[in-house]
Amino acid sequence: MAQPAPFIFFGCIELREILGLRARDERELMEQLERAPLGSVYYHTHSVFLRHHQVTGAYPNDFANWVASQVRDQVLGERLAVVDPFAFGSLEALREELVSIIDHHVATLHPVPRVVFGDPFFFVQSHVIEVPAGLEARTLQEFRRCLAEVDASAIYLHTLESRVWRGQPHGDFAGWVERDLGLPSLAGAIARINPYLGGLEQARTRMLQLLDAALREAEPASGL
């Protein structure tokens, strides 16, 4: 039987670009969100986890946090917070959902809620630079060891970045476990882990639990 191809771990570093788009009220937020590059939609909904490996604000995306904490509109904050990026097949669809929520919300409000004492919303996008993490795995055991010690940016790159920008619908980890280790059930469980709810470290912990369980089950067999 051919040796599985190794899983090579990459970490990443992001360089942030200020786009010069800003919003002071909810309608402006919607309008700028419509015209912002998709990279910015991604930045404010996904790469927040690269900066905070746990969910640290009230909500897990920048739009919801800004509306709730700066505009002080808790209702819209909650409505934006509940949007799960994992439920959308594309960033365009995610953007459409966010715009629709804001549009529906402001349609009933006069005047449109705006920042009075807080900061405007500044649109940013990031350029992610991949860097080899110096770790590679050929077996499930090795994969578990590498996953436990790798920089959290690798979890981000292989679970979020790969789904959104590199056409890996289930992420790199699940793809390798299914394709190269032939473990579709474990791959499915890994693919279902949603970092959006608890952040990268929680996703890592959950993955390690799944791997430990799989390794215990496979103990009599060798090669895993």
């Binding site: 970490g11 570093i13 630079i129 860097v131 993490a133 110096g134 790798v150 920089d151 959290a152 940016s153």
Partner: peptide, 15 residues
């Protein structure tokens, strides 16, 4: 530094 950061920097610097 955070775990892994120095190694990441060393590899980035190689580029």
């Amino acid at each position: 530094a955070p775990k892994g950061t120095v190694d990441l920097l060393l590899r980035l610097a190689e580029r």
